[in-house]
Design a protein around this nucleic acid. Structure first.
Lengths: 172, 172
DNA sequence: TCCCACTTGCTGACGCGTCAACAATAATTT
DNA sequence: AAATTATTGTTGACGCGTCAGCAAGTGGGA
């Protein structure tokens, strides 16, 4: 309330840099994956949790929670990936509503081929430029900011409930 | 080349947090703007540089460079905003190809109404959680990472040339 | 058992962002 | 000056993400 109306110069500069970085870094990394492997960033995001789980298989709900996608988005994207032979759907044993998403051999091969290059790019564009202390500090800061959002937050969580990014009804 | 194939646990944790944060923070902030003012994040992004420039007017090219949008996206979005009466197009004096984007009174009123709440949210979700030293350090790190991208980068710059995020030709 | 509320996943419609192609103009070369 | 090349902005098609609505299933309580 009593806070100054604007950010001071220092904060403002940092904020602008952060905004730019958040546009560019993901886009550079995604371009790299896509160029080298034909996977999109979204494909990659989906395949990672699958590749880390026992049978390359996860319940849709679980997978969605993992990558912070809502059910609808995941369903649409899985359909597309299914057409390309990267994953398959199969029914869930314990819960007849459920759907399991399983990665195919092709899917596993794709992520296996993509991961090393992606990790290397991550280093090249990020970790190689940071000292150990800086990494520690970023981790601390990000954890703090993120958990603050995830706690007090009744407004977008995306994780599970479909609580929804309000977007304007825009056009006439 | 000789680098380990994967990130160590510490780096990996930090990286995941960063990814989550980059999804959630923007979405929380955008939800706030939208809820309180009916502007989308994109609207806000467009209006900010306009509001900072002499006559609330900027050449399209300039504006696009500012917010890192390509010409097409900007053109489309300006059309939508024009329909809603937030901005108008007018022709450019010095360059007959050019188009000037000028914010209307309604546009100015909108951004004026939106800014304080947005700044407050920015504090609440970000700056209030950081010490001064942390802000300085983030600024240093982000500047370094960003300028590294913007230098060596012949792959997506987005800023001007339409060098483009390769995306997969996906479906069927 | 029968409700009733909740969860899970899918779908269609629609807005947004990207891409390729184009027209108009400007800048550069010859 | 004429020809060539580059830049600027717009457009239409199309893929992706969101939303609202639906069908099917689950679980708890009366």
């Amino acid at each position: 309330m009593a806070k100054p109306r604007w950010l001071d110069e220092r904060d403002a500069h940092m904020w602008r840099t952060w905004l730019r970085l958040n546009q560019k870094l993901p886009s550079v990394l995604e371009a790299q994956i896509s160029r080298d492997t034909g996977l999109s960033g979204a494909d990659y995001a989906v395949l990672v949790p699958l590749s880390e789980s026992p049978d390359g298989m996860l319940r849709a709900r679980e997978l969605g929670r993992e990558i912070l996608w809502d059910r609808s988005r995941l369903s649409h994207h899985v359909s597309r990936m299914e057409r390309r032979g990267l994953v398959v759907r199969q029914e869930c044993a314990e819960d007849a509503r459920g759907a399991m998403v399983r990665m195919t051999e092709a899917g596993r091969a794709a992520i296996k081929g993509a991961a090393p290059g992606h990790v290397a790019a991550t280093r090249r564009y990020f970790f190689d430029l940071l000292s150990d202390e800086e990494v520690d500090m970023l981790a601390a800061v990000f954890d703090r900011v993120l958990s603050n959002i995830e706690r007090g937050d009744r407004s977008d969580p995306r994780g599970d409930r479909d609580g929804p990014i309000v977007r304007q009804k825009t056009t006439r």
